[in-house]
Nucleic acid binder design. Structure first.
Length: 333
DNA sequence: AAAAACGGCAACCGCCAAGTG
DNA sequence: GCACTTGGCGGTTGCCGTTTT
């Protein structure tokens, strides 16, 4: 059974009733309530069992994995441990200044889309980035007079919040019917776009960053070859548009459009590292140059979802359909 | 030296969408 | 179309080490 919810929404008695009803209809919630399952921090022994099992059997079937592997954990916990800690491609260690800079840029573009942001930062997980944001960057921005939610000066943000309490809305398509029917879902955002693309992940152009190459690579599905199993050999329309979105993101990240409001003061730490091409782990994966330092802007900030996008379109030459792709990718909350 | 406060982060929770039979 | 499973996401909690009082 689930642990009694500590963070239920208001009116949780109703929620609880619905939950009970739900359970009666569909049975116990997977993974969450079995008596005898271990919780809390993982031991090195458990890590070893899980890691060797996944290496041997591949990812997937998380629900039955604990039993097969002989672990007293719920499948969800196993998946989380693997994804956030044990995967060999995960980079451990402190966030480098260039990574921090990239997080800031991407958060500005995407909001709290941690998985999307993580997909653009080699070796980092969404959980890690989320934690880093909450514990470091948001405080840093507040200290610099910037609202971490809106990326606008705090005074303005407070006023805005009264009229516009919704977090940054990257784009509102005035004509939803024009969104391509192949528009990926939220889950696909990260799955298709950045991870399940062995053809891209395995390229050897020496620029693992630009082609969506997320260093948090995911092993191929060893069981069914589910990855990229489409009939067209994986060069479907989704891939085409995802490539566009990806390069679009790259152009956004790299574009100097961010500079006018942030180039007035450069962070000390970034000052020391802007010209650096290597990452903190010594790899040569291309990271975005970091002219983007957070300080209170001297000019009004660009507002997400407004004219800055026009500016972007003009600068990047991206046509309307791509704009829609971006909206669909980045605009779902 | 001890207690309290604080901060960082791993882990958990609830929810959702897609897939399957 | 329905019931259910699975995988994934963002938000939150709570443990634990560090710093401050």
């Amino acid at each position: 059974m689930r642990k009694p919810s500590q963070s239920s929404a208001p009116g949780s008695s109703t929620m609880a009733a619905m939950e009970v009803e739900d359970k009666q209809r569909r049975g116990p919630t997977p993974c969450c309530g079995k008596v005898g399952l271990k919780r809390g921090p993982w031991t090195s022994e458990e890590d070893e069992v899980l890691a060797s099992f996944v290496r041997r059997e591949g990812e997937g079937r998380w629900r039955t994995l604990p039993k097969r592997a002989g672990l007293l954990r719920c499948g969800k916990s196993c998946r989380l441990r693997w994804m956030n800690y044990l995967r060999p491609s995960i980079k451990h260690g402190p966030i480098a200044p260039d990574e921090e800079d990239l997080i800031l840029r991407l958060h500005r573009l995407l909001g709290n889309r941690w998985s999307l942001i993580a997909g653009r930062i080699p070796g980092r997980t969404d959980n890690e980035i989320k934690n880093y944001w909450n514990t470091h960057l948001s405080k840093k921005l507040v200290g610099q007079g910037i609202d971490p939610r809106t990326h606008k000066p705090l005074a303005t943000s407070v006023a805005d919040a009264i009229h516009q309490p919704v977090p940054p809305q990257p784009y509102r398509n005035p004509n939803p019917s024009t969104i391509p029917s192949t528009a990926p879902t939220r889950a696909e955002d990260t799955q298709k776009n950045f991870s399940d693309r062995p053809n891209l992940q395995q390229n050897d152009d020496g620029d693992g960053w630009k082609n969506n190459e997320c260093a948090v690579d995911r092993p191929l599905d060893q069981e069914g070859g589910n990855y990229d199993a489409r009939e067209d050999g994986g060069i479907g329309i989704e891939y085409y548009t995802d490539d566009i979105f990806s390069s679009f993101l790259d152009s956004l990240i790299n574009d100097d459009i961010f500079q006018p409001e942030h180039n007035n003061v450069i962070d000390d730490e970034n000052n020391n590292d802007n010209s650096r091409s290597n990452n903190s782990d010594g790899s040569n994966q291309r990271m975005v140059p970091a002219p983007y330092a957070y300080t209170a802007p001297s000019v009004p900030a660009y507002e997400l979802g407004t004219f800055w996008e026009d500016d972007l379109m003009a600068q990047t030459g991206i046509e309307e359909d791509v704009h829609e792709q971006f909206a669909d990718h980045a605009g779902k909350y």
